[in-house]
Nucleic acid binder design. Structure first.
Length: 140
RNA sequence: CAGCUGGACCGGACGGUCGCUCUCGGCGCUUCGGCGGCGAGGGAGGAAAGUCCGAACUCCGCAGAGCAGUGUGCCGGAUAACGUCCGGGAAGCCGGGUUCAAGCCCGGUUGACGGCUAGUGCCACAGAGAACAUACCGCCUGGUGCAUCUUCGGAUGCUCGGGGUAAGGGUGAAAAGGUGCGGUAAGAGCGCACCGCCGCGGCAGUAAUGCAGCGGGCAGGGCAAACCCCACACGGAGCAAGACCAAAUAGGGAGGGAUUCCGAGUUCGCUCGGAUCGUGCCGGCUCGGCGCGUCACAACCUCCGGGUAGGUCGCUUGAGCCCCGCAGUAAUGCGUGGCCCAGAGGAAUGACCGUCCUGCAGGAGCAAUCCCGCAGACAGAAUUCGGCUUACAGGUCCGGCUGCCAC
RNA sequence: GGGCCUGUGGUGUAACGGCAGCACGGAACCCCAUCAAGGUUACAGGUGCGGGUUCAAAUCCCGCCAGGUCCA
């Protein structure tokens, strides 16, 4: 029993509308190892200059959920934490207005550490756009 | 003032907007498990690191003792404990003084420092000889032969083999006490003095050890970060320890209930078909439908226990931090008072901006200063403490040495 | 959280505490009409780094660094 497939998406509290302030609560993140595995094995991939984005349409629930994988190859603990924090902030500020029932995993590259923050945000925005189009096409 | 060096400490500051996480308060929704939003407060380090030691804590194991294994290793103290810390000592190195020299004294510094007069093993090359030492060149001695000189006693030189010698040369990391004087054919602890060494008892000190004395001419080369011996310590695993709740699926255990007849087949265990009875499920009940049925198994129903995903606890009040006082050379201990200081779990402490601070480059200015740009280390809690080790921009304070300037 | 292993020319590997070798590759030359193969020659290292023990260290000891691997 977990809250992810059950209550939170059904309730729909966590969907930020255009007027709402940008948030990034726990229910909007991927929190379980099994979810990551499913997205890696069954999901589709989108390659960008500074990251690779995996995404998978979810059967249950409605909200978009996102997680980050930053492995040991990318640097020490300080650098990896910095990457995750910058990604999280970018995702928070570029959260798509339309609600998508999709799980997303982002694998950053080392350049995320030194990249201009605005540029990182643009790339996240473009990735969300690609995912939105892909999901809408499959739904029809 | 500058450079080098030792120790202690700090590790950019303040504010705004939007986020994350925990706690508390009250609110809304709820399938009563939670979810959402509002307000207030808390939110990385000196090394959080490496995981090299030591503990706490938890589970497992355990009559007692020994072996094996691992670690530690001068002495005393500190401590919960340690391979850590503090103090002391031996020893090495550097500088100065003194001495013919060895050595001794003073100052600084280093400091894994039990035992090779228990055993075993190793010591390449070079060298005559390397552990029951050794005679290559030398030195001394007497002998044979030859040459020269001769005052005809012999002397000198060379060759050969004999003996003595451990001074000198040479080899080596190391050649079996050192220096000086005496002594001698030449030499040698052969003798003496001083130093070193060994033994004995004495004194000082808790002890390591030191000091002086007497005796012995000197045995006992080095290596135990070689095997080893001696003394001491150590049960094993680790918060993914461990405790509790516990889905789905599979499996385990216990219990409950009830039959007879006819026909056919038969390897004589039983099987199949029909009727009847009992029972379980569907159903409010009957009929009906789907199953099962008396040795055992299976099936049905009820109950129990283990346990995975997942969740909760462990989880932060502790050998705790700060101030002051006392004891101690110090490590540290004791006492009064005050304080509560991160607890995540795909893992929170961030993003953007402003002002200031520090450093560096550029520009303006006689200068104080101003403008603009760049940079601000090493690094991120993961059960918790005590250490060690390693990384580290810049800065503050205290001490030592050297140089320059002033008095 | 804990255990174990490795590090030597460019590459792969040897070396009872006593001169750091071997093979491949690269370079030059020879051979050949040419290429390959073959032959000869020298080069390339202070054994991951820093200390210590020893007369002497790749080897023994201590501390770091990098990499690999196993268990929970």
């Amino acid at each position: 029993m977990n809250c992810v497939s059950g209550l939170a998406p059904n309730g729909g509290f966590n969907l930020p509308g255009p007027g709402k302030r940008a948030r990034f609560a726990a229910s909007m993140r991927l929190l379980r190892h099994a979810d990551f595995e499913r997205v890696y094995k069954q999901g589709r991939r989108h390659f960008a200059a500074h990251m690779t984005v995996f995404y998978l349409r979810r059967e249950q629930g409605e909200g978009l959920r996102i997680g980050f994988t930053v492995g040991r190859l990318l640097g020490g603990a300080v650098d990896r934490n910095r990457m995750k924090r910058r990604l999280r902030e970018s995702v928070r500020l570029h959260w798509p207005a339309v609600s998508l029932p999709v799980d997303v995993v982002v694998n950053p590259k080392k350049s995320v550490l030194k990249l201009e923050f605005a540029e990182l945000g643009d790339e996240i925005g473009r990735a969300f756009e690609v995912i939105r189009k892909s999901v809408e096409r499959r739904t029809k």
